[in-house]
Amino acid sequence: MVDKALNDTHQSAFDAIKETVGEFTVADPKMRTKNVDVFYGDKQAIFDVSLDIGNNEVIAMIGPSGCGKSTFLRCLNRMNDTIPTCRVSGSMSLEGEDLYGPNLDPVLLRARVGMVFQKPNPFAKSIYDNVAYGPRIHGLSNNRAELDDIVIGSLKKAGLYDEVKDRLEAPGTSLSGGQQQRLCIARTIAVSPEVILMDEPCSALDPIATARIEELIDELRENYAIAIVTHSMQQAARVSQRTAYFHLGKLVEVGETNHIFTNPSHELTENYITGRFG
């Protein structure tokens, strides 16, 4: 009985989300998405989501587990292509180019829209080769000196260089968790992407390493558009300019981070932020 009651509340909450509260467009968009639906086989995971990602902003995507925020994020650089049953409809674009259009190459797209994952996932290679991997496969450097520049520059931007400069040939897995995640960020930066997607980048890290990454995200905003999925509302509040609240596959509310956290318009957002569920 309890289960049924809970289901009913969920269903009614789900039905209650008619359309997104708040302004989902921005004046200077890097990526635009409109009326996106995502299906896994027969199951719909995302319902009619429209959301822009602006230049030089950090947008945080929050919401309870299974609300579709990670799914949405992975659609932005077509990482969902690797799942055979996944189907996307609606429009998504990067600087006006349709992400799922026939002319857009997923390889090129992923070079332009980089991704950092939940669990640090360095390759079974040296620190240097981890960072050099992207430039090498994409042919971004003509010689070793150029490659060295890219690797060192990226490591510096990721705030890792000073910690590893004496052991660039050590395996990437020999680093601590926080360092590994910064290595993964450096690896992403090395390709000079335009957008960086971060899927709960700190969930596997301790508070000190988390603080270091958050600091880094703030610095990276200067050059990149960043979309970050996070479980932690505090993190969203600390690093983002805008926040989008997802619930059961729908985008409930989006707006200035300050506004969302101090004065949410939608009841569900308020419930989530005040910790009634999630």
Binding site: L140, K157, S192, N223
Partner: peptide, 23 residues
């Protein structure tokens, strides 16, 4: 020092370059 050393390097020009190179 580590992060702020060369932010200007990453201009949109080098990015265009990346796109071309990858293509």
């Amino acid at each position: 020092g580590a992060s702020g050393s060369e932010p200007s390097n990453d201009t949109s020009a080098t990015r265009k370059n990346t796109t071309e190179l990858v293509k």
